[in-house]
Structures are given as C-alpha cells and as structure tokens.
Design a binder for these strands. Structure first.
Lengths: 205, 205
DNA sequence: GTCTATAGAGCGATAGAC
DNA sequence: GTCTATCGCTCTATAGAC
C-alpha cells in the first residue's frame, strides 16, 4: 500500500473526505487558512470565498464554524494514523521503526498534510471541550504507535530516557519544524532532517 | 546576582515594568489571559477586569490592544536574556553551559515567567509585521547565547549534529513542555526534566 | 486616572426565495 | 445547494464628564 492507496481506502471507509468533493475541498482550504491566519482570525466569509460560495451557503454543509475545525482535525488524525502505521510496519528493527516514525511525522508536518497537522497541534485551544475529548480519543491511537516502539527500545537498553518524556520532547521538536524548515529550499532534505534528529538522540542501537 | 537582583536591575533600567505598579500588574495579567485563552479570544474587557478597571480606562495606558501583546513579549525577552546570560556564566565547561541553558529555559517556561514565555512562543502570529521585526531583533541576542555554546560543542567534537538545527529542535521540545509538564505534581522535578533532555542528546562530553 | 456611554465595524448564524 | 439580506451580538477604540 502506497500513500495514495491508503488515502483511497480511508475515503472508501468514509473516514476521510474525497479531496475532489465539495466537503474535501472546503476542509483543505480551511486547514490552509486556519494555519496561516489562525482559527479566530479566519472568518466564515474567508472560508466561503476560498471555495467560491457565499458565507450563508457554508451552513448548508456545516452547522457551525467550530464543526469545520473539528472535521479538519478528525480527518487529519485518521489519515496520519494510517500513514504512521504503514511506515512503522515496513521497518524490521526497533531502531529502524523509530527512524520510520520520525520520518513519517516529519513528512506529515512538512508535506501535503502539513497545513492540517499544524492546525491539529496549534489550534487545539480553539476546539470546545467536548470536541477536544472526542479528538483526544483518536489521538491516543496515534500516540500508542510511538509509545510501543519507544518502550521496546527502553527494554532493549538502547534508550535510557523515559519513553513518555521522549515522545513529548519529540512531539515538540518535530511539530516546531513547520515554523522554520523549508524543504523546497534545496538545503536540508527530509531524510537529512531525519538524520539530524537521530544524531541528536542518545541512542546506541 | 540572584534572580531577584537581576529583575531589580532591569526595572531600574526601565527595561521591565515593576510588577507592583499599574503597568506591570496589567502585563502580568495579560500574559496569563493570553496564554490561557489566546490573544484573539481575550477581550480588552477581560484585560481591564483582571486589574479591576473598566475597558475604556485601559486605553489611557496603552494605545491599542496589540501594544499590550508587544509589551508582554519585549519585557519577557529582556528578562529572560538576562537570566540566560547569568545562568551560562556560572558554568565553566561547554557541557555545563549546555545544561545550564536547558535548565534556565525550562525554568523560564515552567516557572513564574512561564505565562509570558508561552505567549512569546505561541502568539507570535498575532503580532503585526512591524512589531514582529522589532521583537525579532531582541530575540536574536537571546538566541546567540545558545548558538555560541552549541558551536563550541561542535568544534570540540561533543556535538555531531548541526548547531542551528539542534537549537531549533530544542526550542520546540522545551517550549512544548508547557503543554504537559506540571512541576507541582510531585513527579518529575525541573532538574529531573533537565536530566531527561540531556539523556536524549547524542553527546559524549 | 477612571468612569459611563457609545460609535463604528465585523462577526457567526438564520430565513426564505429560487 | 446557493443566493441575498439581515438579525443580534460582540468587538476595539473614542469622547467627554468627573
């Protein structure tokens, strides 16, 4: 399964909207706007204009503005959980799995789904409490993939620090790359960036 | 010079407002509100209520709401640059200086100035372009303290990764601790957290 | 230096025609 | 399913009394 097979499978299961459809197009534009301007500064008029309709028409597709934010987050987690799962399953050592996780998360953040990933990380506060609880359940599945690999490295002795703390440090370090890393610049490639992260970790394996 | 001596020296130089005065009290409350609710969701009525005045009275002290955000950021950088400088000057090896930097930044983020530090990191987008440029100049001084130590470690061979990349990874990892680390919980202490970060770094010194 | 009162603009969301 | 029109509300900032 390559990336586009994974996407198509999720669309078939109604877990992710078809990016060609009306709903999918809106969610893509919403992710971009929410990342660039922030959720609060993005108006329903901005969202509507981005897909070429009037603001009133938006509410035929979504009951509230917040429902759009939630949909961006939920679909992003579904997609990236599947991508992370696929990446980790390809490796056959714990060290290789850690590298695959770092590479996959960097790609999620700095690649095509980057806008939505940034929204997921930095617009969390804008989501209502009930929606946060809902999204958190989905996020836990994603996090567990990380924790399983880190725990295995800890048992194997390659990792000395606490897996939970390491995961949180990496969450911060990797998500922060969206503020400074520019893959198109011709400088550091995504693999090169992954190498740098690995070089930073106290890791004998 | 202990921490309170440093603060008093900055107040004497008019670089930081006296926390007991009207301006200082407002900036402290503003930092707390901006961190908790975000800049956009915090209204001038919220800010005024936090110091016990009406919203109209705020504009006797600040010309715009954004000026308050900028003042929070500028004073935070002045204070934390002085604290970082003092911390690094106490150590006498490069490894010790790195540890001191990590410890100091964790304390800035998770201690008394944590609310303002969080605003500095996560409300950057809410600052107007001209103000961003102004604050960036001050930030560069702070960053240079980090880069000097990391460059020295690179020359010494203890650090293999690129100093600029390492600094950015650490910026993300350390600032992210405000979202999960709770020092008062009785679990991990600030020194313990510093140990965990050091344990994560590929660092033979 | 703080108050009351409000101007002026923009916001999310709704209603009903087509 | 999109349109136009607009409601009702909240926001930043101002004006002028005290």
């Amino acid at each position: 399964m390559n990336q586009s097979d994974i996407l198509n499978a999720l669309i078939a299961d109604n877990l992710v909207s078809d990016p060609g459809g009306a709903r999918g197009r809106l969610l893509n534009e919403a992710a971009r706007l929410f990342r660039d301007k922030g959720y609060e500064r993005t108006t329903v008029r901005d969202l509507a204009a981005a897909v070429g309709i009037q603001s009133g028409s938006l509410f035929h597709h979504f009951r509230t503005k917040e429902e759009i934010l939630k949909a961006v987050m939920v679909e992003t987690i579904h997609l990236n959980t599947a991508l992370l799962r696929a990446a980790v399953d390809k490796a056959d050592t714990d060290t290789g799995r850690l590298r695959a996780l770092i590479r996959a998360e960097l790609e999620s953040i700095n690649g095509q789904t980057g806008e939505a990933m940034a929204v997921l990380v930095y617009e969390w506060r804008s989501l209502s409490e009930p929606s946060q609880a809902e999204v958190l359940k989905l996020r836990a599945i994603y996090e567990q993939i990380w924790l399983d690999v880190l725990a295995s490295l800890k048992v194997g002795g390659q990792l000395t620090a606490d897996p939970f703390v390491v995961r949180r440090m990496l969450t911060g370090a990797l998500s922060w790359t969206i503020t400074w890393y520019r893959p198109e610049g011709g400088g550091l490639s995504l693999d090169g960036l992954t190498d740098q992260v690995m070089a930073m970790m106290a890791f004998s394996g």
